[in-house]
Design a protein around this nucleic acid. Structure first.
Lengths: 252, 252
DNA sequence: TGCTTCACTTGATTCACATCAAGGCTGTAA
DNA sequence: TTACAGCCTTGATGTGAATCAAGTGAAGCA
């Protein structure tokens, strides 16, 4: 079950939320995989104090856009977002998908402006973490500083994985790798590793993986024929995890 | 003129260097683009105290290898290095080239183990920056913490550039983009933006850009025919910067 | 000095994926 | 219920870069 946290006024516009839905880092069921991960109870409270939870998003609404002033990073609380850049000939490059417990917006730190745009793929709730406050807190809490360095470092290694995928792997391998990645991220949140609903369109998948929609569709068909995957529109069931891993042929 | 800082014993093996070549962050001519960039004189001294300069590398020698314990990040003082990952079917993926003033090794933070290997493309000198000491210092110096966050963020945005390049651009565009990148990085160090020697092989270029050697070679030939570039083995002269930028057709 | 090796170039052929084109399915609104 | 719009699938054809195959040139070594 998904809890919808978004609120809109009668005109459909977003209302500022003053209450906090009784959610805080201390009781959030994502805290073991999210930013508070490395902290003691007292410290979690302090982190909680700087976090703002006033940003529920409707499907296809932007969290921030490329070029916006950088103020905060964001933790996903529910729903899914995609990050993307727009090339100057107007095309899109999807640079990542963000699931609950994951942090996005860190690419804005270097230039004090967001280097990519972020858009909700479905109704999504995020925790806003003002960056200057986070910096201040990080100076005081070595564990938090360390953890945030690690988060950024992980973003780097994940990007490098994608670089390798794009540069060395076939269409089949790329799609298989993405399915396994989503499966793993579901497992981390104690959800099914074998059955899930894709929050993104075939276009987004193709865009992320450097493929066309048609190719993505054909790969899914092929995988279904090989009885590795059961595909029903956005509903995915992994029938043969070992087969899928084999197909992905990933970097160790 | 390049100053060679490496020292080898009579047997060609690397000697530990006890003296420091009178180099320190305060007088290093790269300090305006390197880690000390954001610091006051006093703070630079403190940063300098934790830095170790005992690691000159010969061509093709490793600075660290994928899987090695992560202890330090490194600033390039002279020469060039490449970072690469090995896929489990034994192939290489070059993930970056590092020129003087640039920092490498940050991908090791997330898992306390280096996520890639780093190898000298020519004789190279690096400054080793032990990470725990850097963390401690960062807690005390907000500017240093900020700057290091920015460096990591830049690595992320650069990786995203490469992702876009690999996913959306043709062979010509990729090679043009790399030439422009090297040109810009030279300019930053007050070297010629239009004439330089490539420190890496065609294989490395192709590997980095997701192309074969043959394709890279053909692109260079084509660019030469179009009088955009003068190519003499590793010596490059950019004849028509605007034409090259046009050819690169990059993301804004 | 010539030999060997490695890096690079060039040409011919092949192939994986893009592109072009058409049709089917799903969800929403009147 | 129909109608429309988006999204997805499938098929036919085209193409840019990979692969295969020879060279050529430059660097290191005996």
């Amino acid at each position: 079950m998904t809890i919808h946290l978004a609120e809109t006024g009668a005109d459909g516009s977003l209302k500022a939320c003053t209450h906090d839905y009784q959610v805080n880092c201390g009781n959030c069921r994502l805290n073991s995989i999210c930013l508070p991960l490395a902290l003691e109870t007292d410290d979690i409270q302090q982190l909680d104090d700087i976090i703002q939870r006033s940003k529920p998003l409707q499907k296809s609404q932007h969290l921030y856009r490329e070029g916006d002033d950088f103020q905060s990073v964001y933790a996903v609380r529910s729903g899914t977002l995609k990050a993307y850049k727009t090339t100057d000939d107007g095309r899109e490059q999807v640079t990542g998908f963000y699931f609950p417990g994951e942090i996005l917006g860190m690419d804005g730190i270097s230039n004090n402006a967001h280097a990519s745009s972020a858009k909700a793929l479905e109704t999504a709730a995020v925790c806003e973490i003002p960056f200057t406050a986070l910096e201040r807190l990080s100076s005081l809490m070595p564990n938090l500083q360390r953890h945030f360095f690690q988060l950024m470092s992980r973003e780097i290694t994940e990007d490098q994985q994608l670089i390798t995928l794009l540069s060395k792997n076939s269409a089949d391998e790329r799609v298989a790798a993405l399915m396994l990645s989503i499966s793993n991220r579901n497992a981390r949140r104690k959800l099914s590793a074998t059955q899930f609903r894709l929050p993104m369109s075939r276009v987004d998948i193709g865009n992320y993986l450097g493929l066309t929609v048609e190719t993505v569709s054909r790969v899914f068909s092929r995988m279904q024929k090989m009885e590795v995957l059961q595909v029903d529109n956005k509903e995915i069931e992994i029938l043969d995890t070992a087969g899928l891993q084999n197909m992905a042929n990933l970097t160790g």
